[in-house]
Amino acid sequence: MKITDPRTAATGHRVSLAVSLWLSLSVLLALVLISIAVGKYRIGPGELVTALINRLQGGDGEVPTVIETVIFQIRLPRITAAVLVGAALAAAGATYQSLFRNPLASPDILGVSAGAGLGAAAGIFLSLPVAGIQLLAFAFGSFTVLLVYVISRAVRGHDPVLVLVLAGVVMGTLAGSCISLLKYLADPYDQLPAITFWLLGSLNAVNPADMQVSLLLVGLGLVPLYLLRWRMNLMSLGDEEARALGVNAGRLRLVFIMSATLVTASAVSISGVIGWVGLMIPHIARLLVGPDFARLLPTSMLLGAAYLLGVDDLARTIGEVEIPLGILTAFLGAPFFLWLLAHSRRGWQ
């Protein structure tokens, strides 16, 4: 008789990396096609295929201009943005969760979102053009994290990770107060709604030109994350153990923080603050493929992209007016998280 050890089922629910990548990639592709089709102006499957083939063959004008415009000027840039922002936030979330050994870490744990929000609010307050607002958001987001890092280096004799996270909370709150001050001072008919709307997060104002810069920056941030993917596992054991295992933990942490900040700041500067994605997607990815960062990172990115694309489709189709993305992700994320809390033994297994 064969005796089965109940513990052999321990990793049984995990799927291989290949399976999870193919699965999430197909879901993502299906969602991309659906996202092109749905919206105020409906595009049938036949029209979609004709328009895509036409484009691929160089385009000779057989397709109505309306459809051309809707697909290539409005929907595809927005889809690209959703995919990019979703993947970026999930990657940054996975990074911080592993780095800080904290399943509640999100991309904005070091204050990048609050800083970016302050930058955007300042841009709107100064009536800058869209590109200027994005630039300020990016600069303020990165600068906040830099400040947090410098503060954490200045405070010695404590657990460096703890100091970092606490400094992040403090700076984030401070940036939040500055945002409130700007809102208080802003023109209530014009600027205040714009600031509020920006802080809720949305993808309806993206244009193809922004996308290129952001794509480049997000890509730039992802390269070190990918290259150092195995080292991240060592970092997730904590500073002391990582160092005992031969890792220069301090330097490595700086690289991870810089990369995650670059990724998040570029994403936030085009979409505004979108919460919950970077918090919940890495959890789901970890349930699927386990905590090994080499598998966690790509899975998180694909899932994050698909998730944000799906939520953005909801945002622009379920109501008469578009619902801000950040509100929807919170409505979906909060119950999910509570469910996770109730059904997993320790919140992150």
């Binding site: 990793t11 592993s98 050994r101 596992n233 997730s236 054991l237 904590g238 970890r286 386990g290 905590p291 090994d292 992150w348 297994q349």
Partner: peptide, 8 residues
């Protein structure tokens, strides 16, 4: 902190 396998 995370559910690594023994081999990992």
């Amino acid at each position: 902190y995370f559910p690594f396998t023994v081999m990992e």
